[in-house]
Amino acid sequence: MVKRILNIQDAAWVQRVTVWRQVKDVLFIGIGVVMASIGLKGFLLPNGFFDGGAMGVSLLLEMVTPLDLSILILLVNLPFIYLGYRQVSLRFAIKSTVAILGLALLVHYIELPTITADKLLIAVFGGFFLGSGIGFSIRGGAVIDGTEVLAIQVSRRSSLTVGDFITVFNVFLFIVAALIVNLETAMYSMLTYFSASRTVDFIINGVEEYLGVMIVSNHSDEIKDKITYDLGRGVTAFKADGGFGEKAKNPDRHVLFCVVTRLEVTRVLTEIEKIDPKAFVIQYPIKDTKGGMIKKRPLH
């Protein structure tokens, strides 16, 4: 189907790219689930600490209800999975469901010895393992903490950005934790959240909420159609001349530019590679925007 529509690449190459992407996704998600379960069972749960986001809500509910954490992880993330299906794709929702189910099973069945009793080490390394799990899962095209999916939905309906919403959500969560549990646990848990969030940023190479993607390719028309019609994302085509060699003699080439979320960038890169494996692709974080479909950040 792709070969017939684009008429530039053989089906065998497209199949290899697709299979290799799927293998990497499974590997990343598997590593993420294992890392997150180590952070929970080896550090946070034995010491009554929790994190931010949907995982923090699950841990907080586990402290104040008789429900098992594995069940709470599933229940809390179900609405986020549905939002992921509506906002991203069915494939994203399926992969996230499998990842969250795997995490719930590991949390329920595995037993790990208590690694340390030092509260500072628990907060820092518990956050590190949990953040690694979230980061690797995102690299695999899934989430095990659905707060970002909710944040994307809220950002499209209000003046809050993804980052702003996550900050407000977690501030409220830690205030509730301080009232229900105690202030000291809430403060250590804030450190856990900070460690986890920095680790997530590191795992996914410092990717911000939105990424600018610039594509230089001899097959720019096919890539533009793929991103626009199949992926449903806007693309701007700039007329450009090559700067050196034979490419400098081609005055009619185009450079493509699009803005996507970090949950979508993996799929965009995969589709580009299917069409033109030699395409020159530049990714960079979007710090601020004005106009267009991306709203200006009110708190920055």
Rank of each mutant, 00 (worst) to 15 (best):
P285E: 07
F257R: 06
D51A: 13
A196V: 00
L120V: 15
L160K: 04
I215W: 02
G126N: 05
Q15E: 15
K95V: 06
S132V: 03
L121I: 10
Y193S: 00
E208V: 10
H219D: 07
V19F: 15
A240H: 01
Y82A: 15
L67K: 08
G53W: 01
K290Y: 14
V76D: 00
K287E: 15
D118L: 13
G39Y: 02
E148L: 08
F129P: 04
L130I: 12
P298H: 14
A142Y: 03
K24T: 05
I122N: 06
A151D: 02
I31D: 06
I166M: 13
G292V: 08
L74R: 06
F50W: 07
T266C: 03
L103F: 07
N205E: 13
G146P: 05
I5P: 07
Q15R: 14
A12S: 14
R198N: 13
I166D: 00
M293R: 12
G243K: 08
F169I: 05
M63Y: 05
G232K: 08
R91V: 10
F129E: 01
I286N: 11
S96C: 09
G48N: 14
F174M: 12
Y284F: 15
A178F: 02
D276N: 12
P277D: 10
D10G: 15
V171Q: 02
T199W: 02
I71V: 15
V200H: 01
T116W: 00
Q9T: 13
D51I: 03
F194K: 06
S137N: 09
W13K: 11
